[in-house]
Simulated scan of single mutants.
Amino acid sequence: MIWLTIGLVLLGVFALRFHLDRRRISNGIYLLSGLTITGVGIIGSGDEVDAGLLLTRVLVVGSPLVILILAGLLLANSVQMARREGARLANLLSIGPGVVMLVPFLLLGVAIATGSIWSVVLAMLFVVIGYFGFVFAGFVLYSLLYGRLPYQPGMDAIVVHGSGLVGARVSPLLAARLDRAIQIYNEEAAQGRRPVIIASGGKGSDEAVSEASAMADYLIARGVPTESVGVEEQSTTTRENLLFIQRLLGERGRNLRMVLVTSNFHILRTAILARRLRLDAEVTGAHTALYYLPSAVLREFIAILVAYRWTNVVACVVVAALPLALALVTGGTPRLG
């Protein structure tokens, strides 16, 4: 009963934090923790099941398994990307992370076969892997939930983030974002509002024009009035997008509510950045081809880990110390085999 109570409390904390501000990565951790512990509490409510032991097994097996599955997806993704878009270096970058993620599991196999590595060392390694697996699962779960949230009408500005051009033309990925922005604009216009659509993106070294300029042409060619289209042509990153947009809209003399339009894999990190910059902004996502998602989601996750690097360093030190502390308490570091 105690585990069920803890799980329900965590879900209650999630609900409160979600109500106060849904643009928090920690919301996903509370949600996943609450769902996991509540599920274990329900399954372990019978006398024949030890809920605490069941929870331990779920975490010890399930969290590293997330990383193993992700490694497989990344390796398969590199093959799929090469088939669809050619064997260019950019399309094969998911091979490296996939192989790196498999290394600990290969070491485990060697250790089991030879008994050459202390079990406590492997335990320290795998609790760290389990930590990242659990956080990644929470990130994906909350990204899916956040992406399903309905659009809130009544925005003053629709900001479209750039994602690269093909020569002077928008790429399919960027076209999906612009089409989503046009859809939102038409919905707002049908209710008598005229929000400005701001195309945001600078000019890359391999691009003929700025992303914002090509995006503006795309919008106007599809019926958006010229006076309803604005451009921001200086930014090269999502953070710069938001900083320059903040400055641009601030020149209008009032705080404007805005919706940020990006790809569905990018929505949660964009929302977190907007929150950290104290922007009154929500985020909506455009559809992305499934084969593109594994490596894209991993990049987003790594970017969030870097943004909260010291939190993650401390967490890794703490969880890695648990097997060592257990070994010291029990008086030994047994070998495998």
Rank of each mutant, 00 (worst) to 15 (best):
V231I: 15
R269V: 09
D156E: 10
R252L: 13
L273R: 07
L249K: 05
G201F: 00
N255E: 15
R148N: 09
L277I: 03
V261C: 04
G223F: 06
V160G: 00
G230R: 14
F265S: 06
T238S: 07
V209K: 12
Y185V: 06
S263V: 06
V261A: 01
T238V: 02
L219D: 05
S263Q: 08
E211I: 02
I267H: 01
I158A: 04
L174H: 05
Y218A: 00
N186W: 08
I182A: 03
I267R: 09
S163F: 09
G164S: 03
R222Q: 08
Q191W: 11
R239E: 15
L149G: 00
T270S: 15
Y218C: 00
I198C: 02
A157K: 15
E232Y: 01
G201E: 05
A157I: 13
S235G: 06
L173D: 04
A190E: 14
S213M: 07
L242H: 09
A212Q: 11
V196T: 13
R148E: 09
A181M: 11
Q191T: 12
V166W: 10
P225Y: 00
L260N: 02
F244N: 14
T270R: 01
G202Q: 08
G253T: 08
S235I: 10
T226K: 14
A274G: 11
R278V: 01
R194F: 08
I182L: 07
Y218K: 00
S200R: 03
R193D: 01
R148Y: 10
Q246G: 03
I198F: 11
S200I: 04
M215V: 10
D156Q: 05
A189Y: 06
A214F: 01
L165G: 12
V166E: 15
V170M: 02
Q191L: 09
R275A: 12
A271G: 04
S228E: 13
S205I: 10
V209P: 02
R269L: 10
V160Y: 00
R257D: 13
V209R: 13
M258L: 14
R252Q: 14
A157D: 15
T262G: 01
L174V: 06
H161N: 11
V209S: 06
Y185I: 07
T238D: 02
G167K: 12
L243A: 11
Y218L: 00
T237F: 05
R180F: 10
Q234L: 14
H161E: 13
Q152K: 14
F244R: 11
M258Q: 15
L243T: 12
I220A: 14
E251A: 10
G230N: 11
M155Q: 15
E207W: 05
L242G: 08
I267C: 11
D179C: 05
S235A: 13
L219E: 08
I245Q: 03
S235M: 04
L277N: 03
L173V: 01
G167D: 09
M258S: 12
V229T: 10
T262I: 00
A212Y: 10
G250V: 03
L149T: 03
L219S: 07
G253C: 10
P150N: 03
N241R: 07
L268Y: 10
L248S: 09
E188G: 09
A216Y: 01
R257L: 00
S200M: 05
T236F: 14
A157W: 14
L165C: 09
Q183D: 15
S228I: 00
R275M: 05
T237H: 05
